[in-house]
């Protein structure tokens, strides 16, 4: 069981990484674009804290938080985003296409659900005991392959936890313009037991994910977890069309870092901030100093 300080440390590491990334994007050292995990940090930390070493993670375009919560190295991620040979994938994959140990991400919607299902089938067949965690967004629900895979995941009882991060917006399109019917019932229609949680609080997500991961592991069977969450940043950079008032209100009510910060004493809080700020700054500078890249 991780204590409040450690949970905060993990949350704030993602926050700080993404903040530095967005700040430094202006300087031109990062090619292309990026999708940050601002506001969704507690999903990554709360779920991935329960993994065993052999477990597999499949993520999507918004994967930095998942990668860091999995234990990925911030310096290697900065270097990857800079397009450097010292990056996670040598600068080839960039923001959306990471692979390190048992962590895989990719940038086309829907296909990652199939990847995750296939990996879970492999782990089940080889009786490795490992499970797969697959992160998807509400926008992904528009892709047909998702439903092909939900069918097979249930049919073959694959050991996968499907984590739907429902931030209610896909790029600029609110889910009210894209999703008909019930989201949880999509999973339930295939008889995948589904839990819905509307929270950005790590203390809600963390214990619930522990229970679900235990069930997936013990029963070698799927579970779905829909977390209603808030994207506190743009889809990528500077492409947020939501009204300022909407974002402001989300920041006030749904910021997982602010929610958890309140549980730490002032000195404890400040110490974590100081440590992580220094760690991320050092990771950034070391990545920048390495050879290659756009800078």
């Amino acid at each position: 069981m991780l204590d409040n300080k450690e949970l905060f440390r993990r949350l704030y590491q993602i926050r700080r990484f993404e903040t530095v990334l967005l700040e430094q994007f202006k300087s031109g050292i990062f090619p292309g674009t990026t999708h940050t995990s601002l506001g969704q940090e507690a999903n990554a930390v709360g779920v991935l804290a329960h993994l065993e070493p052999g477990d597999v993670v499949v993520s999507n375009h918004r994967c930095h938080g998942h990668f860091l919560a999995y234990g990925g190295d911030p310096q290697a991620l900065f270097a990857e985003l800079m397009g450097k040979p010292s990056g996670v994938c040598g600068g080839v994959g960039g923001s959306q296409h990471l692979h390190w140990r048992n962590f895989y991400s990719s940038g086309v919607q829907g296909g990652t659900v199939a990847m995750a299902a296939g990996m879970a089938l492999a782990e089940k067949r080889t009786q490795s005991g490992a499970i797969v965690v697959d992160f998807m967004g509400d926008g992904t629900l528009g892709e047909g392959i998702v439903y092909e895979c939900l069918n097979m995941i249930s049919l073959w009882q694959l050991p996968v936890l499907l984590v739907l991060e429902h931030n209610q917006i896909a790029q600029t399109t609110p889910s009210s313009l894209a999703i008909a019917g019930s989201v949880p019932k999509r999973f339930e229609a295939f008889e995948i037991p589904t839990t819905a949680l509307d929270s950005s609080d790590i203390l809600d997500i963390y214990p619930l994910a522990e229970t679900l991961i235990e069930q997936v592991r013990n029963e070698s069977a799927p579970r779905a977890l829909m977390i209603t969450t808030a994207r506190l940043g743009s889809h990528s950079k500077g492409d947020d069309t939501r009204a300022p008032g909407v974002l402001e209100s989300l920041w006030q009510s749904r910021d997982p870092i602010a929610i958890q910060a309140k549980r730490l004493a002032g000195a404890e809080h400040n110490q974590v901030i100081q440590d992580i700020d220094a760690k991320i700054q050092q990771a950034f500078e070391a990545a920048l100093a390495a050879e290659g890249g756009a800078g």
Partner: peptide
């Protein structure tokens, strides 16, 4: 393994199986 009529899903699943060491 006989499959539903889901060519995209089955092929994607085979990709995941291969990444984890099987020969689909």
């Amino acid at each position: 393994l006989t499959t539903p009529i889901s060519e995209a899903g089955v092929t994607g699943i085979a990709g995941g199986m291969a990444l984890r060491g099987l020969r689909p």
